[in-house]
């Protein structure tokens, strides 16, 4: 995989990670976290680790944001 693609993927991860940190409201943060998960999976794919990318999508983009959303719903009741 070309170095340019790796640099682009790394930059995207840096931008998305910053977006997660900059999101204040936990309910919105679950959404940015989910997007960050997709970008991170892209980086793993570019670095030729498709197994890790799949785990990242399943856990980081679906499971963890869902748990955050449910916790927010419970605590804001």
């Amino acid at each position: 995989m070309s170095a340019a693609l790796i640099v682009v993927a790394l930059l995207l991860v840096a931008v998305a990670g910053t977006a997660v940190v900059a999101t204040g409201d936990p309910a919105r943060q679950a959404v940015t976290l989910s997007a960050y998960g997709v970008v991170l999976a892209l980086l793993f794919l570019v670095l030729q680790a498709p197994d890790v990318a799949l785990s990242q999508i399943a856990v980081g983009t679906a499971l963890v944001p869902l748990m955050v959303m449910l916790t927010v719903r419970k605590t804001e009741k």
Binding site: P50, D51, A53, L54, S55, A58, V59, L63, L66
Partner: peptide, 22 residues
């Protein structure tokens, strides 16, 4: 698919299990 073809293509028990659960 991820579960059954884990020894052939990317994926496997962990990924397949989490995808099935979600």
């Amino acid at each position: 698919d991820l579960l059954v073809h884990g020894h052939l293509t990317p994926g496997g028990g962990f990924q397949g299990g989490v995808v099935l659960a979600t």
